[in-house]
Design a protein around this nucleic acid. Sequence first.
DNA 1: CCGAACCTGTGT
DNA 2: ACACAGGTTCGG
Length: 287
Amino acid sequence: MPELPEVETIRRDLERVLCGRVLERVEVHEPRLLQNVTPAELTAALSGRRLEAVARRGKFLIFVFGAHSAVVHLRMSGWFALRPGGHTRMVWHFRPPLYFDDVRRFGTLHLVSSAARARRPPLAGLGPEPLDEGFTVEVLARVCRGRRPLKNVLMDQTRLAGIGNIYACEILHRAGLHPGRPAQTLTQTELEGLHRAIREVLDEAIAWQGSTLGSAAGDYRTLSGARGGFQDRFRVYARAGAPCRGCGTAILGERLAGRSTYFCPRCQPARQAAALRGRACSRSRAR
DNA sequence: CCGAACCTGTGT
DNA sequence: ACACAGGTTCGG
């Protein structure tokens, strides 16, 4: 469920509400959540500790408690809330308590040393942060080496951290690039446009507090239980058959690398030749 | 590269 | 009953 904008929204809320508070006790109700510690070890490491910071790396949330950090991935249906939900897998007894809810039980928690966490699993090997200052067009050009389809590259966490299926689709539409386009064929101008689209889409989605697709159990919610707002601004995701907001052409829904992929065949032409020579396809770009 | 698996719920 | 879901990992 959650990609970078959703995780960042949760991070900001957690930091505001819980930073500086002491974790008195940990309750684990789903043993599979813990990847490299036992419940007893987790409790021993964190009980009585003050939450110093809540950070984010890609789609991971990082809770910093002094020398130890708890690194959590929400996967498909995990979320943190201040009230217990229907599938509580863990409770952190701050005042107020923090509940981890996860219908599908895919969520993970690693306990790592704060000093070494960037060099240890699960954070080691993640690609650059797309919203960091250091993420330049040159860095993106390096990310785009190889012939793999652009959408796969954007979603590859070892190439670029934090982008998933929804935002890959939205970014490619904004950049006017076909999802199946071999990554290394992008021109300098296209790389610049893609770089801008990545920043714009992620920034906007964060400003709207992420995307909540439906209202099912496990659908993304903010810490206080509110829905995100960016789903109403989708230009392509889950809009197969609907008119492109830029040119009116029906949005296509296809299966790419096993994932639902949505794009506008006119604004995101498959043939790069047209884009390169700047003719043939007199498309009116989505504004 | 693809599909299956991990789980549960929802929508057709 | 069956397909599908924001993610990741594994095996063929």
